[in-house]
């Protein structure tokens, strides 16, 4: 039953860009905004997988999202080629401006789409592996892990703000031209990116649900509720936690990579700790540990944000703060919990 509802909603969403393409009353703005929400939903899903099931509350998932975005951004920058305002055949504009003579080594290979996509998965994954291994091995859990991951994204933000990182400094990357030979500002490109995001979301949802139903999922819930007991029962909790954390970081990387071509910019403020916390609230608001709830939360809170920031921008932060308070005090199981109680 539930599967049918989700499938129906996905099909309805898939209609949006089709209606836009045929000129039937859906504006470009709606397609871009809902496309953005789809990426946020993937991010929320990835957080829920780690937090809701394994009890790993990462306040640095925005970093994985932004790293995926940067990988895609680097690919898009390489594709601009000689069309930049300085007209340099290889170097992006900001490098010409900063006086670079040749491409730094870490930019090699990003002209290839498969390589860039691989990096959007591998870089967040590798970082998550490193941090996760160090943290889980010394049994850092709960709030300590949260603070550490928050410090991680904060440190990355500071580092990416530097101009001599060779990654665009505080302006980041923007002014993209095309992806896979398709100019980005056409309705068709928007529609394709939308569908890609929708497909990625459905894929991640399917993957997450299968993990949750498998034996692995049961073990993860065990880690969340009584890690020490599970350890005494002979499970290697380090491996399980590491697996889900890395997988979750990769999902966040995909979300970032799909997000950047749709909004047309990536800069270091994506790393700001506030972004990661906001994403955690989407999950909490929708209902943690349910996957569908995370997606629902991402859509609801972001819809509210888009509406309120245009109607009453001063009020938005109060409302977001109130959502934080309400969700922790009044709605411990989130919207999904509320819906299930009704039934």
């Amino acid at each position: 039953m539930r599967r049918l509802i989700i499938l129906g909603i996905a099909l309805l969403l898939a209609l949006l860009p089709a209606l836009n393409l045929t000129g039937l009353g859906i504006s470009d703005f709606v397609v871009t905004v809902v496309g953005k929400w789809l990426c946020y939903a993937i991010l929320a899903l990835s957080i829920d997988l780690a937090w809701g099931y394994a009890g790993i509350l990462s306040l640095g998932h925005g970093a994985f999202f932004a790293l995926g975005g940067y990988a895609m951004g680097m690919h898009l920058m390489r594709l601009i080629g000689p069309r930049g305002s300085y007209g340099h055949p290889v170097l992006p504009d900001f490098m010409v401006f900063l006086g670079y003579q040749e491409l730094p080594w870490f930019w090699w290979g990003f002209q290839s789409f498969p390589f860039a996509m691989l990096m959007a998965l591998l870089i967040p994954g590798a970082l998550a592996f490193l941090v996760g291994y160090l943290a889980f091995r010394s049994r850092i859990t709960g709030v300590y892990l949260s603070i550490l991951t928050q410090a991680l994204t904060y440190a990355l933000m500071l580092a990416f703000f530097r101009n001599d990182m060779g990654l665009g400094g505080n302006n980041g990357f923007t002014d993209f031209k095309e992806l896979l030979g398709l100019p980005l500002n056409t309705p068709l490109a928007r529609a394709l990116l939308f569908w890609a995001s929708l497909a990625a979301l459905c894929g991640c949802l399917w993957l997450g649900t299968s993990i949750a139903r498998s034996k692995l999922g049961r073990v993860l819930v065990g880690v969340r509720d009584g890690e020490a007991r599970l350890r005494f029962l002979g499970y290697d909790t380090l491996q399980h936690k590491l697996f889900v954390f890395v997988l979750s970081a990769m999902m966040a990387g995909i979300a970032g990579a799909l997000y950047v071509p749709q909004v047309g910019i990536i800069n270091p403020s994506e790393f700001s700790p506030g972004n990661s916390l906001e994403a955690v609230v989407w999950v909490a608001f929708g209902g943690r540990g349910t996957l569908v709830g995370a997606v629902l939360g991402a859509f609801t809170v972001n819809a509210l944000k888009t509406w309120l920031t245009s109607v009453a921008p001063d009020v938005w932060l109060f409302v977001l703060g109130a959502v934080f308070v309400a969700v922790t005090l009044l709605l411990p199981r989130g919207l999904i919990g509320l819906l299930e109680k009704r039934r």
Binding site: L57, G142, V143, S146, L277, V280, V281, A284, D314, L317, F318, L320, G321, A322, V323, F324, V325, V327, T328, L329, P332
Partner: peptide, 21 residues
């Protein structure tokens, strides 16, 4: 929310946001 540190963290973050605004 005593005894539930993760929830406290989210709650106080929301309060901080409102105070700042």
């Amino acid at each position: 929310l005593y005894g539930r540190p993760l929830e406290t963290l989210l709650l106080t973050f929301g309060i901080g946001m409102m105070l700042q605004q």
